[in-house]
């Protein structure tokens, strides 16, 4: 008799990787077929080779590097600003009810406001300089981040804090030597997720109000119906997102060897 297949069965890493590669190949194959067979007009759907050659052409003429650099600059600044403010505020909200009452409900409200709708407002306030793009990334991530950091901090058990107290730690020492180290792995996972969102908001900002950046290059390509350039722009952003994600993952594994329980994938 064959054994029953149960949920969440483990799998060898190699097999997992093979299936993942097949999934990518499948999508690429479908795309190639659709463009080569003539089923779809090549103006609307460029072939993978056209996109790749566009990619190298953009590297050679320097436009891709330039646009990528400015986009990375904007996302880094916006995300850093959100982190530098969001993490301490989130931690303080978890520690003090007054702080929580002051910030949490407000953040809950603002995070439901549509970020793209802030673009025209910010342009009116700040013009179309770098700062307005940075602010879009900031608004898109900050409020959400505060709420998620509160959750991360709340997940640290009261007993762990009490253990710190009964060993002689003051409030400040307990926050820095117990709460923050205890929540650090979850916090890094939160930041990892937030930077993914940051990419989305960056492109929103660049689509609406910019004359440089990856988002802008996509918009420009649309005006001239250069779908190969649109595809390339989207793929490059996806790739950059994937790279940041991998870097975060490696960092998390390196920083927290003590963490209990392994995770798949």
């Amino acid at each position: 008799m064959q054994r029953k297949v149960l949920l969440r069965r483990p799998m060898k890493r190699v097999n997992y990787a093979i299936i993942a590669i097949i999934a990518f190949a499948l999508v690429l194959g479908l795309w190639t077929f659709a463009s080569q067979s003539g089923a779809v007009n090549s103006t609307f759907l460029p072939s993978p080779t056209e996109v790749v050659s566009k990619f190298f052409a953009s590297i050679n003429d320097g436009s891709l590097g330039e646009n990528t650099a400015i986009s990375i600059y904007r996302i880094t600044m916006g995300f850093l600003l959100a982190t530098v403010l969001g993490v301490p505020i989130g931690i303080l909200c978890s520690c003090f009810r007054t702080m929580s009452a002051l910030c949490a409900p407000l953040c809950q409200f603002i995070r439901y406001m549509p970020v793209p709708a802030f673009v025209p407002l910010l342009m009116v306030w700040m013009g179309i300089g770098e700062f307005s793009k940075i602010m879009i990334v900031f608004i898109g991530t900050f409020f959400q981040m505060v709420l998620m950091i509160i959750d991360d901090a709340n997940s640290v058990s009261d007993d762990l804090l009490a253990a710190g107290y009964t060993l002689g730690a003051s409030n400040t020492v307990t926050i820095f030597k117990v709460l923050i180290p205890a929540m650090a792995p979850k916090m890094m996972q939160t930041l990892r997720m937030m930077i993914g969102w940051a990419w989305t908001y960056l492109v929103v900002a660049e689509l609406v109000a910019a004359n440089t950046g990856l988002g802008y290059s996509i918009l420009k390509a649309q005006r001239f119906l250069k779908t190969d350039a649109i595809f390339m722009g989207i793929l490059v952003i996806g790739l950059l997102g994937l790279i940041t994600d991998c870097l975060f993952n490696i960092l998390i594994k390196k920083l927290f060897p003590w963490e209990e329980g392994g995770k798949n994938g």
Partner: peptide, 18 residues
């Protein structure tokens, strides 16, 4: 308030995992 003159051992595991 709490202080280091009163040490405590809890039922839950409270070693600092890091």
């Amino acid at each position: 308030g709490p202080g280091d003159d009163r040490g405590m051992v809890f039922q839950t595991y409270t070693l600092f995992p890091w």
